[in-house]
Design a protein around this nucleic acid. Structure first.
Length: 268
DNA sequence: CTGGGGACGGGGCCC
DNA sequence: TGGGCCCCGTCCCCA
């Protein structure tokens, strides 16, 4: 089993830098209780909502009706049918792993399809999703504003991941995050899946033995640039990470954390 | 216990 | 706007 699937632990004195909410989600998706959001697919009838639930439903998702206390604002592309942000009509979440290493796992531009987007909060119509989204902020704002905020300064909408509690202020950020759940980049050798193509490329080097990152001070080479960077610290007399109490330096943050945890630095 | 290597993930920047 | 890449960081294993 790949190490990345093992349960990870965190240093108690430091906030996890990432994955704070998705530790379990790689192997087991989360509970229905989280507000869900998903990227539109070719054959879903997307409902882009205002905060707190930006909900998109995949056709293969058996989701209950939106959990939001707010009536979802359906995009009503007309007259051509459901919103189609996907270029490949045959695409589905089940076919993603057959893609090209992840370059094109995301739905393509909708420009090729002419839609009119109606806001269900009012009678306005827009010719682009972005225009509608922008307009919808004006409906979203009052739901999030504190009383002190002026009405014309809407709070940015939240795009919720359907797999975990994370939320993002842009659809692009959400799409990138969702890749960490869908893992569209699959190693042809071992089948391990990754969220991004370059992660897969780095992984493939573990099969090929390629080590393109060479140390200029010794004969070692590394498959990963970060590992080379860490290695270079071992050639330095003064390491990058210094203990605040004893001035001892370490080549890695993790070593400094271990050092602190071992008791050099009383809780400060 | 410590130091180092291997593998990997996320945010941010650039194109 | 999205993909590629870099940087920083984490976690685990092993000597």
């Amino acid at each position: 089993m790949p190490r990345s699937f093992l349960v990870k632990k965190y240093y108690s004195n430091k906030k996890p830098y990432y994955r704070e909410n998705q530790l379990e989600s790689q192997s087991a998706f989360v509970p229905e209780s989280f507000p869900r959001a998903e990227l539109p697919t070719s054959n879903n009838s997307s409902a882009l909502t205002c905060y707190p639930t930006s909900q998109f439903f995949n056709s293969d998702d058996t989701l209950p009706a939106p959990l939001s206390p707010i009536t979802p604002v359906s995009l009503s592309p007309s007259p051509l049918g459901p919103l189609d942000l996907s270029s490949s009509p045959s695409s589905s979440s089940g076919s993603e792993e057959e893609e090209d290493g992840g370059r094109t796992s995301d739905p393509p531009s909708p420009d090729i399809i002419q839609h009119i987007y109606h806001c269900l909060h009012c009678s306005n119509s827009y010719t682009s999703l972005s225009a509608l989204s922008h307009h919808q902020l004006s409906h979203c704002a009052p739901l999030q504003q504190t009383p002190s905020l002026p009405a014309e300064v809407p709070v940015r909408p939240a795009f919720h991941c359907k797999h975990c509690p994370k939320e993002y202020t842009s659809l692009g950020a959400l799409k990138m995050h969702i890749r960490s759940h869908t893992l569209p980049c699959v190693c042809p050798t071992c089948g391990k899946a990754f969220s991004r193509p370059w992660l897969l490329r780095g992984h493939i080097r573990t099969h090929t033995g390629e080590r393109p990152f060479a140390c200029q001070h010794c004969n070692r080479a590394f498959a990963d640039r970060s590992n080379l960077r860490a290695h270079l610290q071992t050639h330095s007399e003064v390491k990058k990470y210094q203990c605040g109490s004893c001035a001892r330096t370490f080549s890695r943050m993790s070593l400094l954390h271990k050092h602190n945890a071992s008791g050099c630095c009383p809780a400060s």
